[in-house]
Nucleic acid binder design. Structure first.
Lengths: 334, 334
DNA sequence: ACCGGCATGCAAATCGTTTTGCATGGCGTC
DNA sequence: GACGCCATGCAAAACGATTTGCATGCCGGT
């Protein structure tokens, strides 16, 4: 009942395993008749090369893990599902074409069955400062590539999400004659926040505007954002535009505006970062940025497989972030 | 620069590979001092057992695949991302706690690198009639568990999504005094559609209502649904409620209603099946059904691991589907 | 002095491929 | 007839672990 091996097939065909291997791989010449016999026989017997054995011999890659440092309950909740899973989907496709498989790894709790995790490398999505996930893999010598640089670890291989550029794009788009632009980020110390906040500071300095920024606890999600942004706007009446990278927070900001009787975009212009379902389903639809996550995922996998095989990681360039203008930031037709 | 093997570690520690192996696996007694020496040395040298080699020798014990028969471009698009990925997230957690890993497998194209796919089992999400994905795994003797029965293959192990019950739940909720209830499903022949359509036929028969149903091509997504439903409603003016299991189609139906000047829920009551982000972000929010996808995923994994290990598959019961009432089907306050 | 048993560790076989290096025989050429 | 070359195929060594059977050396009991 067990699958036939190459040896059994070879015996049945009256040849050596070598010839069978060559017949399939084509790496050496095999008599056409012989090859045909082998192939049909393989069909009959249901022979398929054992992928594990094949990989062992020819050093192929095994599996790589995709990890979010945020609990799935949060990551898979409305707030982050899109971002993580869009990457996951793209990464799965790329991984398969590189003959490795992509494993989804739920957030790590030390001392759990996680010790048994058997992967050749890991991709960590937007690690935060001192992220324990990184240490975990680091400790056991598993190569890691981050999507979005790990704060405080510029040495760690990473695919740059170009957050500074993205922030500039959003801020320049939002910035208008005279009014202030506010910024809403999160409490965690992720690189995208850090870069965005820096870009924001520079932006304000250039234009001689007073900055107005708050950070919101990610765990609170849209609801907490709605409350916090409402208070924030109440205190800063002169804010004419709001840059809200986290899409869940942007949704909260939308509610806050409604609560205050502010119309979007006429009284308040709004834009977010990740152009996912959330941005498109909001009303009005949210201006966002195309981050080319498919390219990001592909690059991350290529870097990681390179790392696993001992080659130097040479990040391919990602297309620059692209603003997707929608109703939430339409310029008032004046 | 390549990873050290067990032989190198053994040499460095002055013992045999056997002892190293036993030190880690614990399958034989090893002197505590020796073990300690090996472990610390392994740490220093960054030794990790090669998962591929390990698997080759000791058989499976690896990974299971999660497959959607729909292209990721569609499955991961707004229309199905939620459903598939919510299962993926839950399954990943369960899988890890059973010490296997969950691999995301993009839709299969024959003759691609897919041959190299190395999994011990597969979970297929809502297979369609004659789904080639099932044959693929069947051919190579990989055990499969379906989420949602495979049409025409009642023998295939599956976790029941209880679509008949779900449909009854929705229809009974929508059915009101006198008006007709319409049904919108998809072109593919998935079990959930089949059961839903049967339940719908029975529902109409019981109440002596003429049935009114259409099927929409999944690939067209929300846009095509908007067009199709509008035409459908125009032809069936007496429809007072619409049961639209596919959430993307429900969103389209919402647009169709708006285009016709019908108010939801006053002129048209609406409900969908999967209670995901889409249902919650629609306006008005869509009445939907809690399918307990976390339990579904857990059960699927348990069945599959059972199958892999040769035990009989004994499906655990899933909690019954639960209606989540929202504004889209609120009874008019009369 | 002998023997059984325990603690400790090693050698070698094994998993199923792929990949070299070498063997065989036939055939054309000088 | 000696020589080289091509076509065809096989044997054996990897790949990196796990697992089984056996070998020591030491101890206490008789």
């Amino acid at each position: 009942m067990t699958r036939p091996t190459i040896v059994q097939l070879a015996q049945a065909a009256g040849v050596s395993p070598t010839t069978v291997s060559h017949a399939f791989s084509g790496r050496r010449y095999v008599d056409p008749d012989t090859k045909a016999r082998i192939v049909t026989l393989a069909q009959e017997m249901g022979y398929r090369a054992n992928p594990t054995a094949r990989r062992l011999r020819s050093g192929g890659g095994g599996s790589i893990a995709l990890v979010s440092s945020m609990p799935f309950a949060v990551a898979a909740g409305p707030s982050r599902l899109g971002f993580l899973m869009e990457i996951a989907a793209a990464a799965a496709v790329t991984a398969l074409s590189r003959s490795t498989t992509l494993c989804l790894v739920p957030p790590l709790e030390r001392g759990s069955q996680l010790e048994a995790l058997d992967v050749d490398g890991a991709i960590v999505v937007e690690p935060a400062l001192d992220d324990s996930v990184l240490d975990f893999f680091f400790e056991r010598g598993v190569p890691v590539v981050a999507i979005g640089h790990a704060p405080g670890r510029p040495d760690l291989p990473a695919v740059d999400l170009r957050s500074t550029e993205t922030a500039r794009l959003l801020l320049d788009h939002l910035g208008g004659a005279g009014w202030r632009v506010g910024l809403v980020t999160g409490l965690q110390r992720r690189n995208s926040y850090i870069e965005t906040e820096a870009a924001y500071a520079a932006f304000c300095a250039e234009r001689g505007l007073a900055s107005a920024a708050i950070r919101i606890d990610e765990r609170g999600g849209e609801d907490e954002a709605a409350v916090a942004v409402e208070a924030f706007l109440r205190q800063n009446r002169d804010i004419g535009a709001l840059c809200v990278p986290v899409d869940a927070f942007a949704a909260g900001a939308l509610r806050a505006a409604a609560a205050l009787g502010l119309s979007v975009p006429d009284d308040l212009r709004l834009a977010t970062r990740y152009d996912g379902m959330r941005a498109r389903l909001a009303s009005p639809q949210l201006t966002a940025v195309n981050l080319h996550l498919d390219q990001v995922a592909e690059t991350a996998i290529d870097m990681l497989t390179g790392l696993i095989e001992g080659r130097a990681a040479s990040p391919k360039p990602i297309a620059p972030p692209l603003l997707v203008e929608r109703a939430s930031s339409a310029r008032s037709s004046s």
